[in-house]
Design a protein around this nucleic acid. Structure first.
Length: 631
DNA sequence: GATCCGTTCCGGATGAGGTA
DNA sequence: TACCTCATCCGGAACGGATC
């Protein structure tokens, strides 16, 4: 296909040569006959993914495109992939505009009769009325040059106007401020190299491993790596030998690593050692500061890292030029984490739907997840001034938040009920401060991009801690829900309480400010567009109880691995029954205390609690019991 | 040398059916 | 009736390598 169809680029989808073929099959116009029409419904991936750029910029610009209809929000039975309908004639473009139906809101639920679906009906009813701006679609006549460049953004409801405004106001693109974007390593065989952080001590691999960050571990200004990787490089990224412990660890997979092909070559053929990572980028590792982001996620998550970790492809990092200060990183961090950035990214990144079979049908816009690639990110327009102060405050808060998590508490000592309770309060309070600070950041950013002239940030000293559900856009949302215009999923999913009136406990200054924000949401269409759940931070943190349970469990299991439980006085390994173990455990007051905490009872029944704790950890004594039918 | 694509995978949530 | 077991569903990504 690459030879036959000029539009094929990179790893393309078959829809690309198909589209070229479709237009090619239609008749050319001559003096006696008009050019043939062609119409197709096709996957919309070419609109934003890189492989579509040739198709859009070199092929479609030479065809007489007449209509582009975004059907990604409509429900099409058996077809979860987001789609677009293109209609045109096989001839040179005519001067007139292109009719476009832009999506505003997706189908809220699976319609009984797909032909009567809300979005589909809206498209059918309004495709001939340019200027229509409804709840489901916007219909406009676009000037041809709007569709001449990749990527296409076919979001209605004023999105294209806002996007244009952002581009107009921007001072420079992100690519001018940074050195590069990408992963820091790619092992080529994660199963061989990765192991849980908690087990590196047991295997004596501390000197040979570094934490490795995956995409899902980059959230809300924090990195929470659960794994580390065997890492045969020093702090400068130069190759080093592995210790005996690490050699032993990798030995069982040596043959696999030696024969594995990357770029159609073995490691030896590429001049690498068998235990080298397939792709490792020393320069990115050497320079400690970086901004990591989540590659696939529902919202934008950027986190400052201060070094000593590696990042795989699902958590790429932004590297600033050599010698850039922490302030420069924090300023970028601030703007990239704003709701405005989320808006821009979603307009320009590929929408992967909401998972499920073939992409599924998203009941809410904020549930769809996107793929944020480095290439797209480089075009991100930066405003002239950056929100350094709020960026660094959020980063500092996130660090204290991490320090008060249950996991941090058990790191150096025995967890106690009072300490846990204290930490829960602290962390709740810090979260409240982060939520309110993110609001300040978002509203500051609106002004930095010139979307409003008003300064709607708070200048008093008494910034309240916000609960989820108390942000301005959530009040608007709650009011809409109250009158039945929107579904309450946002609050249900995040476990927050919707409120329709401003809380009395806020200072009058802050209440006035939020009221002014509400007024602006009402009066300014651009702000109204940005102050929506799909662009605002979700703060979807793991519930405290769950974190606590997991942490206590880990602490107990680590403690129970102590040598004294499993070896007799002569140093011979010994098998123990639960009751024998319970007998020994009872003599350790700390252990019993934590067991009671984990069990949630005051007078803990040690045998029962240990049984519950250890059943999943033990290997049944009969082989026949080790495998169950479903396993 | 450095991605970026498309499909597959994991594990928690849910709920039906079975059992004490 | 209340608890328990098991299977399925689905949210939320991760994987591997072909291509530029």
């Amino acid at each position: 296909y690459r030879k036959l169809y000029s539009t094929c680029k990179g790893t393309y989808a078959l829809t690309v040569p198909f589209m070229e073929r479709f237009f090619g099959l239609a008749k050319h116009g001559t003096d006696t006959q008009p050019a043939g029409w062609t119409g197709q419904i096709t996957s919309n991936s070419f609109m934003k993914r890189e492989f579509g750029s040739k198709l859009i910029e070199e092929y479609l610009v030479r065809q007489d495109l007449r209509a582009v209809i975004d059907t990604s929000g409509a429900y099409i039975p058996g077809h979860g992939t987001p789609t677009v309908i293109l209609i045109g004639k096989h001839q040179q473009p005519t001067p007139g505009p292109v009719r476009a139906v832009l999506g505003v809101q997706g189908e809220p639920e699976r319609p009984e009769d797909p032909a009567q679906g809300k979005v589909w009906s809206a498209i059918v009813d309004n495709v001939d009325s340019p200027g229509h701006d409804g709840q489901w679609v916007t219909v406009v006549d676009l000037p041809r040059d709007r569709l001449a460049t990749h990527p296409w953004s076919l979001t209605g409801g004023g999105a294209s106007g806002l996007l244009a405004l952002m581009n107009e106001y921007h001072h420079r693109a992100l690519r001018r401020a940074i050195a590069e974007i990408g992963r820091t390593t790619h092992t080529g065989n994660d199963e061989a190299f990765f192991l849980p952080l908690s087990s590196r001590g047991v295997r004596k691999l501390d000197a040979d491993t570094v934490p490795v960050v995956l995409g899902e571990e980059v959230r809300d200004f924090r990195l929470q790596p659960a794994n580390c990787t065997v890492f045969p490089y020093d702090s400068q990224g130069a190759p080093k030998e592995l210790t005996v412990a690490a050699q032993r660890y990798l030995w069982r997979v040596r043959r696999g690593l030696e024969t594995q092909l990357d770029f159609q070559q073995t490691k030896a053929e590429r001049g690498l050692r068998w235990f080298d990572h397939s792709m490792f980028f020393p320069a990115r590792y050497r320079n400690p500061l970086s901004i990591a982001f989540a590659f696939v996620a529902t919202h934008n998550h950027f986190v400052l890292d201060r070094g000593g970790k590696v990042f795989n492809r699902s958590a790429p990092v932004i590297k600033l030029p050599e010698g850039a200060t922490e302030e420069e990183h924090l300023a970028l961090l601030g703007v990239l984490n704003s709701s405005t950035a989320c808006f821009w990214l979603k307009q320009n990144s590929h929408d992967k739907g909401n998972g499920g079979i073939g992409g599924g049908i998203a009941s809410s816009e904020w549930e769809r997840f996107f793929e944020f690639t480095g290439t797209t990110l480089k075009d991100f327009p930066l405003p002239a001034a950056l929100p350094l102060k709020r960026g660094s405050q959020l980063d500092a808060l996130a660090q204290s938040f991490a320090a008060s998590a249950p996991a941090a508490l058990t790191e150096d000592g025995t967890p106690t009920a009072s300490a846990l309770e204290e930490a829960r309060k602290t962390s709740q309070s810090i979260l409240g401060q982060m939520v309110v600070m993110q609001e300040e950041l978002d509203w500051e950013t609106y002004r930095l991009y010139g979307l409003t002239d008003e300064d709607l940030t708070y200048h008093g000293e008494d910034l309240p801690e916000l609960l989820l559900g108390q942000r301005a856009f959530e009040i608007v949302l709650a009011r809409n829900i109250a009158v039945g215009e929107q579904a309450p999923e946002w609050f249900q999913r995040h476990g927050s309480t919707p409120i329709t009136a401003l809380p009395q406990e806020w200072s009058s200054g802050y209440r006035d400010l939020v009221q002014r924000r509400l007024d602006l949401i009402e009066s300014n269409p651009n702000i109204r567009l940005l102050e929506k759940p799909e662009y605002k931070r979700r703060w979807a943190t793991e519930p405290w109880e769950k974190q606590e349970e997991r942490t206590l469990r880990t602490w107990l299991l680590n403690r129970l691995e102590d040598r004294s439980y499993w070896f007799d006085a002569q140093g011979r390994p010994a098998a123990r029954s639960i009751s024998q173990l319970a007998d020994m455990v009872t003599r350790d007051a700390d252990l019993v205390g934590v067991l009671a905490l984990w069990d949630g009872t005051v007078d803990v029944d040690v045998v029962k609690a240990l049984t519950r704790l250890l059943t999943d950890e033990a290997v049944p004594y009969l082989a026949a019991q080790r495998l169950k039918e479903p396993g």
